[in-house]
């Protein structure tokens, strides 16, 4: 297949994943802003930093971190390259470029998402409509995922799109930890002390896993366990370990199909083996912040290597 087409499938999947992650971040931010109006601005700022949009926000609105402004900016501002509307448009443009590699169902799901969200986000969303709009965004991404899973050939194109999904997701989870790691730190010093309830709930909500956490660990909330859950727990579909496993599966598939072990395959394996194959305590011992910074760097390096090895661009 064309390198450009592989790249379009990969970026399409990254943008789709990003829109879903951003919807989740808005949801979590909105909850905390509702319940704690005195720290709302700080929370919104941390949401924007996590989503990598704070720079653009300050360019447009300075330090006015009001709920309404931030939500509108993150949902639909065309000046924000990562707003959900911008990202969906990018996903759809990439799908159009790779149209010949998509099934009719897969293409129509992406196109319908773009049309549906375009209609929903045409005007500023009122605060009381926000939960419905966010639910619709999640639902659209579910439909796209379903169409892909149900109809796409499991060929190289599919593997490139999956690589995009998991790279983006790993990046997102790591960024959430990167912004919130300081909340987890002090409590580690005195094991057993619980961290701020609302804060940890926000973290877990940002990855849609507050219920899953309780299923797994019961009522006990500890920084160590939350970190373990998000970083190492392989059954949790947004954990770093889960995403890296999947990326290695996709890279392994490509290596077999193409009969070529690329540098990207080696980098992918090293993230799993060197970084994620140790107990959480050792990660904390060596510094959680350092760990996350290093992970983000390695993940980005892998992304660059994939683009090079599979000739997305000349």
């Amino acid at each position: 297949m064309l390198g450009k087409t592989a790249g379009s499938l990969y970026w399409m999947a990254r943008y789709l994943e990003r829109s879903e992650n951003n919807a989740r971040l808005i949801d979590a931010g909105f909850r905390i802003a509702l319940t704690r109006s005195n720290t709302a601005a700080a929370e919104w700022r941390s949401v924007l930093v996590t989503a990598g949009q704070d720079y653009y926000f300050r360019q447009a609105h300075g330090a006015d971190y009001s709920s309404q402004r931030v939500v509108d900016f993150m949902l639909r501002d065309p000046a924000n390259p990562s707003s959900i509307m911008s990202v969906i448009k990018q996903a759809r443009d990439n799908a159009r470029t790779a149209r010949t590699y998509l099934t009719r169902e897969a293409w129509e799901a992406v196109n319908t998402s773009w049309m549906t969200l375009g209609a929903l986000l045409k005007r500023q969303v009122r605060e009381d409509d926000l939960p419905d709009v966010l639910a619709a965004i999640r639902q659209q991404s579910g439909l796209v995922r379903g169409a892909f899973a149900g109809t796409m050939l499991r060929n190289d194109g599919y593997n490139f799109s999956r690589l995009g999904t998991f790279l983006e997701r790993a990046d997102n989870t790591a960024r959430i930890l990167d912004v919130k790691y300081y909340l987890l730190l002090p409590s580690v010093a005195h094991i057993g002390s619980s961290i701020d309830n609302v804060q940890w709930e926000t973290i877990l909500r940002s990855v849609s896993a507050h219920r899953a956490y309780h299923w797994l660990y019961g009522a006990e909330i500890s920084a160590l366990k939350i970190a373990e859950f998000l970083i190492l727990y392989k059954q949790m579909p947004r954990s770093l370990a889960f995403c890296c496993d999947k990326m290695n599966d996709n890279l392994g598939w490509l290596a077999r199909a193409y009969g070529e072990e690329t540098e990207a395959v080696r980098l992918g394996a090293s993230i799993c083996n060197d970084r994620l194959s140790r107990p959480i305590a050792s990660i904390f011992d060596n510094g959680l912040h350092e760990f996350i910074t290093d992970f983000l760097r390695a993940n980005a390096a892998l992304a660059r290597q994939i683009e090079r090895d599979y000739r997305f661009v000349e």
Binding site: L2, D156, F160, Y258, R311, E314
Partner: peptide, 14 residues
Amino acid sequence: RVVDGRVAMRTTQG
């Protein structure tokens, strides 16, 4: 691009 006297397309494998 032109490669070895032919017009060729850049695929994921060359």
